[in-house]
Amino acid sequence: MTTFEEIYNRYAPQIFRVCLGYTNDADQARDLVQETFISVWKGLPGFKGKSQISTWIFRIATNHCLRALEVSKRMPGAELPANLTEIYDEPQEDKLNFLYRCIAELEETDRIIISLELEGLPQTEIAAVVGLSNGNVRVKIHRIKEKLAQKIKSVWTD
């Protein structure tokens, strides 16, 4: 049986990145990580292994992200900078911030799907987390990539 500590050490960074992708706010993402692992702590003794443990944890995390719609307005998004070319050749950290800002402009479900995709989850697992068919997820990921590409294309060149 995997211990809570092992699960936390393995998944906390992943959950944090996904929540950060959804919220574009580090403090809120940290709160969501905490909420997620409170649920994991409570649910772990009764976890029956009907799904992979990662699917279960990502479901909890993304549902906590979505639950925030009950208590706040739309998660803080971000406006793209007026002069996009300023991002070109910026340090890695700025590129990361720019990526988050691009993701923040997407719709809520698209933010979750692309965050899970960037985190490296297989598309079947993303489908299980979100509740869509594999085919549907594949199409959505393709469309989201196109949307992101449009935003980024004008900024990053080879």
Partner: peptide, 18 residues
């Protein structure tokens, strides 16, 4: 490239498991 950038997010601020 995006995945590489995505994984550079700093997660040091997260609490330890304890």
């Amino acid at each position: 490239d995006l995945k590489a950038i995505w994984h550079t997010a700093n997660t040091d601020s997260l609490p330890t498991s304890d």
